[in-house]
Computed example of a mutant assay.
Amino acid sequence: MSLYGYARVSTIDQDLTLQENALRAAGCDIVRSEKVSGTRRDGRNELELLLAFIRPGDTLVVTRIDRLARSIKDLQDIMCMLKERGATFKATEQPVDTKSAAGKAFLDMLGVFVEFETNLRRERQLEGIAAAKGRGVYKGRRPSIDPAEIRRLHEEEKIGATAIARRLGIGRASVYRALASNTRS
């Protein structure tokens, strides 16, 4: 019957200390933390490690549910996995504890708002990008591939796609696309 804490922030500039301290104060013997986006589960190795290690009677603890998941689907998937393993979930800053019916209901309600907040943030970001494009300020990411250099290496130095990809530090598919776009032009 152990308490396992999980702390997460989205960017490397953010600090995990407050979450980690709150989880230890809540009685967590083990606290795993990571700096990665919560919008998807892939790439969240510390969370996957905790979920693989958790046993019947254990509790996964976070400070707020948005630290665990940013979508209803991810949240429900994690909750199903915990239930299958006989474990429970608790949030220290919100009245969420899946040992009770009220805690489960509140978890579902908060999950809706977490996903809503994520969707609002995405909409605002897209609106900002559209406005910046309208003003001519936003040009997008700078190209990381120089098609002219790819063509030069291929035509003048007679280098194959694999060697070009290695030399430029790009994928072979990018080399093939650049060469194909040259033949279409």
Rank of each mutant, 00 (worst) to 15 (best):
E155H: 09
A173Y: 10
A52L: 06
A131L: 08
E48C: 05
R166I: 04
T92P: 01
A161H: 07
A101W: 00
I65R: 00
I150P: 03
G103Y: 11
Y138V: 10
G140V: 08
F89E: 03
R177F: 00
G128M: 07
C80V: 11
L126T: 08
R184V: 13
Y6P: 10
G140H: 05
R55G: 05
A130F: 01
A69S: 13
Q94V: 14
E149Q: 15
V96K: 00
A26N: 12
L120F: 03
A178R: 03
A173L: 06
T92F: 02
L120Q: 08
V31M: 00
K35V: 06
P143F: 04
I145F: 13
V31F: 04
L120C: 12
A26V: 06
V62I: 13
G140L: 06
S100E: 10
N182P: 02
E123N: 12
P147G: 09
E84N: 12
R40H: 14
V9H: 06
G134N: 10
A25I: 09
R152F: 05
R141N: 13
D42C: 02
I54H: 06
S174R: 13
T63S: 11
G27T: 02
A165K: 00
K139Y: 02
S37R: 04
D15M: 09
Q125H: 09
L153I: 07
V175Q: 07
E115G: 08
E127D: 15
P56K: 02
I170S: 02
E156A: 07
I54G: 06
M1E: 12
E155F: 04
L51N: 13
G103E: 11
G171N: 11
R8T: 02
R8M: 03
G171V: 01
L153N: 04
G103S: 04
A69I: 09
L18G: 03
Y176N: 13
R141S: 06
K35H: 12
G111Y: 01
D146H: 11
D58N: 05
P95G: 01
E156C: 01
L16R: 03
F113S: 08
G128N: 06
K99R: 15
S174G: 10
L23V: 06
S2V: 12
M79L: 15
L16Y: 01
